[in-house]
Simulated assay, not measured.
Amino acid sequence: MSAFPQPTDGEPLDFHTERDEQSRSWTRARPNAALIERFGRFGYKVTLRGGEDVHYCALGVEEDKYIGRCDCKGWKYHDGPCAHLCTLRKAAFIGLIDVEKTDGSPGDEHEMRQMTGETFDGERFDGAIERAQEEVCHR
């Protein structure tokens, strides 16, 4: 079982349901019309056609099942994968990207969270925590 939190009940990303139900996320996902830039082992920057914002996604394969996350509101507030993750899945299917395998280890989990800006390494994160603590103490 994966160490990665999932959008609904802890299961891997269910792209089959998105496809079968022709969800809004699935129909918006057009990898040939999107800008996809890889960074890091699991990280992708995705901009959909007609979208103004770049979204940071992480996608990996664990035991032949896709796992991932995104920094968009669709990922945060809705069940199932967002349009950005659906775009990456379609891009993998047609050979535009190669999705890396993960073993579900805490190190891989941390790396995926870094790709979506949920965690930071080093001074930047520590400095932000210290400033927030100082502000609370001075109130």
Results as ranks from 00 to 15, higher is better:
34 A>W: 01
34 A>F: 01
36 I>F: 00
37 E>C: 14
37 E>M: 08
37 E>Q: 12
38 R>I: 06
38 R>A: 07
39 F>Y: 11
39 F>Q: 10
39 F>E: 08
39 F>N: 09
40 G>I: 00
40 G>A: 00
40 G>F: 00
41 R>H: 12
42 F>G: 04
43 G>R: 10
44 Y>Q: 02
44 Y>D: 04
45 K>A: 11
45 K>T: 12
45 K>Y: 09
46 V>L: 00
46 V>N: 00
46 V>H: 00
47 T>P: 05
47 T>G: 07
47 T>L: 06
48 L>R: 04
49 R>Q: 13
49 R>L: 12
49 R>W: 15
50 G>N: 04
50 G>W: 04
51 G>F: 11
52 E>F: 13
52 E>H: 12
53 D>L: 08
53 D>I: 08
53 D>C: 11
53 D>Q: 13
54 V>C: 04
56 Y>A: 15
57 C>T: 09
57 C>N: 13
57 C>E: 15
58 A>E: 05
59 L>M: 01
60 G>W: 02
60 G>E: 05
61 V>Q: 10
61 V>T: 08
62 E>I: 03
62 E>M: 07
62 E>L: 07
62 E>H: 05
63 E>T: 06
64 D>P: 15
65 K>T: 11
66 Y>M: 05
68 G>A: 02
68 G>P: 02
68 G>L: 04
70 C>V: 01
70 C>S: 05
70 C>A: 05
71 D>C: 14
71 D>A: 13
71 D>R: 14
72 C>K: 04
72 C>D: 03
73 K>Y: 13
74 G>M: 11
74 G>V: 07
74 G>A: 08
75 W>G: 15
75 W>D: 09
75 W>P: 11
76 K>V: 15
76 K>Y: 15
77 Y>I: 12
77 Y>E: 07
77 Y>W: 12
78 H>W: 10
80 G>S: 10
80 G>V: 12
80 G>T: 13
81 P>S: 02
82 C>D: 01
82 C>R: 01
84 H>E: 03
84 H>F: 02
85 L>D: 08
85 L>A: 14
85 L>T: 08
85 L>P: 06
88 L>E: 13
88 L>C: 08
88 L>F: 10
89 R>K: 07
89 R>S: 13
90 K>N: 02
90 K>R: 05
90 K>Q: 03
91 A>E: 00
91 A>I: 01
92 A>K: 15
93 F>S: 15
94 I>K: 05
95 G>W: 07
95 G>Q: 06
95 G>E: 06
96 L>S: 14
96 L>N: 14
96 L>T: 09
96 L>Y: 11
96 L>A: 10
97 I>W: 04
97 I>D: 06
97 I>S: 05
98 D>I: 10
99 V>P: 05
99 V>R: 06
100 E>L: 09
100 E>I: 07
101 K>Y: 10
102 T>H: 13
102 T>F: 09
102 T>W: 08
104 G>K: 02
106 P>A: 02
106 P>V: 01
106 P>I: 02
107 G>T: 08
107 G>P: 06
107 G>F: 12
107 G>N: 10
108 D>H: 07
108 D>F: 05
109 E>C: 11
109 E>K: 13
111 E>H: 05
111 E>C: 04
111 E>Y: 03
112 M>I: 03
113 R>S: 08
113 R>V: 09
114 Q>E: 09
114 Q>D: 12
114 Q>K: 07
